[in-house]
């Protein structure tokens, strides 16, 4: 049964990612991307990596993607965009991502109904993740911070508004 759950969520992940890259509308793509990240989080959960699943939902699906959606919506201020936003709210727009997300919810509900929080792999707790990160992988954490610094400086430079001549 766990295998079936795995393949189902992997399928959801693949389908929604395909929808992300084929979508024409940025907002539509973002909705599918959130579903894709949720599906990945569910796979982590199935594998016993609860902490990774949690972070995937909170940080990627929660913080970053919702931020993207907000930014996309905020950029479209003004009267004529209200019409556009109304058109975003039609069923064609949200039914796909909602269905896929509902499937994921069903899977999660099934797992909870089983009562044991079954996992295919080995369970990894948050404490173990922390010990690994600040033990053998300490250098990786430091390097990741430098990688973020490089990305930040680059984004700051490239994204800065151009002065009008």
């Amino acid at each position: 049964m766990e295998l079936f759950l795995f393949y189902l969520s992997a399928g959801i992940c693949a389908v929604s990612t395909a929808m992300v890259i084929t979508g024409v509308n940025a907002l539509h793509s973002l909705l599918y991307l959130i579903v894709s990240l949720l599906a990945a989080a569910f796979i982590f959960y199935l594998l016993g990596a609860y902490f990774a699943a949690l972070l995937e939902v909170i940080i990627y699906a929660g913080a970053i993607m919702v931020l993207f959606v907000f930014v996309v919506m905020m950029l479209n201020l003004g009267r004529q965009t209200i019409e556009q936003e109304k058109s975003w709210l039609n069923a064609k727009m949200w039914i796909g991502p909602s269905l896929l997300a509902a499937l994921l919810l069903l899977e999660l509900g099934y797992l909870f109904a089983q009562g044991q929080g079954t996992a295919i792999g080995q369970q990894v707790s948050a404490k173990q993740v922390g010990i690994a990160l600040f033990g053998p992988y300490l250098l990786a954490v430091e390097l990741a911070s430098m990688l973020l610094l490089a990305g930040l400086v680059g984004a700051y430079h490239l994204g800065r508004p151009l002065e009008r001549p």
């Binding site: 990786a140 390097l143 990741a144 990688l147 490089a150 680059g154 984004a155 430079h157 490239l158």
Partner: peptide, 19 residues
């Protein structure tokens, strides 16, 4: 991580003259 640090810095350096 090393490879990404290298590449991410290079993206921004290549596109540096943004005008």
């Amino acid at each position: 991580l090393g490879l990404e640090t290298l590449s991410v810095s290079l993206f921004a350096m290549i596109a540096y003259p943004i005008k």
